[in-house]
Design a protein around this nucleic acid. Sequence first.
DNA 1: ATTAAATTTAACTAAAATCGTAAATTATTA
DNA 2: TAATAATTTACGATTTTAGTTAAATTTAAT
Lengths: 206, 206
Amino acid sequence: MITEPPQDNKKYQDLVTTARSLLFKHGIKRVTIEEICEKANVSKVTFYKYFHNKDDLVMKIMEDWVDDGVREFLAIRDENIPFMDKMLKLIRLKLATAQEYSDEFIDELMGTNENLKQFYQSATMKTMELVTDFFKEAQREGQFRKTVPPEFYIYLIEHISEMMNDDKLKTIISDPHDRFQELMNIIFFGFNECDKTIEYDKLMEG
Amino acid sequence: MITEPPQDNKKYQDLVTTARSLLFKHGIKRVTIEEICEKANVSKVTFYKYFHNKDDLVMKIMEDWVDDGVREFLAIRDENIPFMDKMLKLIRLKLATAQEYSDEFIDELMGTNENLKQFYQSATMKTMELVTDFFKEAQREGQFRKTVPPEFYIYLIEHISEMMNDDKLKTIISDPHDRFQELMNIIFFGFNECDKTIEYDKLMEG
DNA sequence: ATTAAATTTAACTAAAATCGTAAATTATTA
DNA sequence: TAATAATTTACGATTTTAGTTAAATTTAAT
């Protein structure tokens, strides 16, 4: 029988945070319940008090993770700053979260358990809608040219983190700072001439 | 019976390179022989033709790795460029190789098998001597002030990669490029005033 | 085309790792 | 102090992995 809901329980939280970092780094199958328990200084029996099995644990981690992501998105969306700054913060958010987990983790999420797969897909869908609405609103306000499908902007943001870590691009622009600058210039100005002195980093402070 | 020496064998090389990337990323115990074989498209029987067991494989990977490292060091040492440029290249080399493997891998190397542990320690020792000699020579030539123990320079170089990835330092200097610049300034000038326009990256080209 | 070598497939056993649970222990509260 | 809740220890059942072997298949060389 599973004890619910132990959100403020010390042992429970230790298990979740320990598991999160291990699973995000190595994926699901490489990490055993016993390892999580050891690193979290919690006995296995206590684990089974709070979780049915590993997939159940992963599910709860994912729920937390998605909730956090949505909350951070909404916080940026509702800030009282220029649209351009919001865009940058969203891209930084995407880059930061993309570095948290490995591809392996997402692959396993999709490859093994049906529940987890469905949860992840519906969460992705929900987030997509949220961000799409944000871009549609921005278009109505004239922040973007209206001929661009908002889904394409999402696609771009999704792929910036990929491009930032792409080995081929790394050989072309080795410095991460410069690489980010160039990617931003493409996003905001395409191949047209643009004000090359923009330091996108500087817009992020605060 | 183990077949020797199959350096130019395709399957052998596939096993070694596949294993290397898996082991460096996840450590030894998380990776199974069967996984290595699958990813390398080599059957288990062929694996046992070339290696006694996992530790034997790791040993051969380490040997290659150490040899490569020494070769790259010597190449830099013997280049016909200013000493300062050599220093920078060595630091870059250290940074690059440090990113290849995870701490987990080294920990397991020291924690489990006695042979591997000894091999790694003696290899480290040998490398230390090599680098120490380089610095002593540089001191004789007046490249460094003679009051600094060469071992301390090695210690510094060893720790630059650590500092580059240190979370606390990341919050202080978030941009990797800037962080590297500042670390280089400390190494070369200490807290004294220095020519702040030096772009260490630029010295690396070629 | 024939032979020899390299590789794979498919089984199998022993050992080790992992899961999940019942009973014992410790901490907490009434 | 007695009752209850939280946690651990210790253990059997299950699964995974390591390491071998025999026979079939592919590859390369003669």
